[in-house]
Design a protein around this nucleic acid. Structure first.
Length: 191
DNA sequence: CAGAAGATCCCCT
DNA sequence: GGGGATCTTCTGC
């Protein structure tokens, strides 16, 4: 497995989103293959936390270098993991929505309290992999949280895209096909 | 199986 | 004070 270096994250957001498909996300001994992501385009994207250039305590890390983790609390009880993209001053991000569980599956099941639905959803996968807000701002080219390449080949024809999930409030942006997933993977989130 | 509702709390206005 | 890049549980068919 080759850990992705810092420059991997310098690609334009949508290209990086597609490049993340098929990679392995590792946190310590726990890990899985990325099968679904969503791109958030920054100030021009009504669905993005950084829409309109909003700079707050929460969104601060999005304005920093690409390749750091943006992790936030959602609905009071779950956390979402994003990869910051776009580079300094361009607050874009990619939400990791689903993994195929591969390493430490028993631990994931224990953490989730069930043996199914371990990592098919942004809140589920962070719970399974024990990823919380203490890792906000972490550089994703370093231990303990990083992406790597195990040689898995994503067939270009298997990459699907469609509207993002849970952003109905975002007007026209709600329909932009900025959710990417690998077709045929049961790990893809269901919502 | 589908839909509704509840949980829960930080963030921002 | 309102709402959210979610998930689980419960209800009813």
């Amino acid at each position: 497995m080759r850990t992705m270096a810092a420059d991997f994250y310098s690609a334009p957001t949508h290209l990086l989103a597609r490049s993340l498909l098929g990679k392995i996300l590792m946190h310590g001994q726990l890990g899985g293959r990325v099968v679904e992501v969503e791109a958030y385009q920054g100030p021009s994207d009504r669905a993005a936390h950084s829409f309109g250039g909003r700079l707050t305590q929460r969104t601060r890390v999005m304005y920093g270098p690409a390749g750091v983790a943006y992790i936030y609390l959602i609905y009071g009880m779950y956390t979402c993991l994003n990869v910051v993209s776009g580079g300094e001053g361009r607050p874009e991000a990619i939400l990791i929505r689903a993994l195929e569980p591969l390493y430490g599956v028993d631990t994931m099941a224990r953490r989730r309290g069930q043996s199914r639905n371990l990592t098919n959803g942004p809140g589920r996968l962070t719970q399974a992999l024990n990823i919380d807000r203490s890792l906000n701002g972490h550089c994703l080219w370093r231990d303990p949280l990083f992406f790597s390449d195990d040689g898995f080949l994503v067939q270009p024809s298997a990459v699907r895209q469609g509207p993002r999930v849970g952003v109905e409030y975002a007007g026209a942006a709600a329909k932009f096909p900025w959710r990417y997933w690998i077709d045929g993977h049961l790990g893809v989130s269901t919502r």
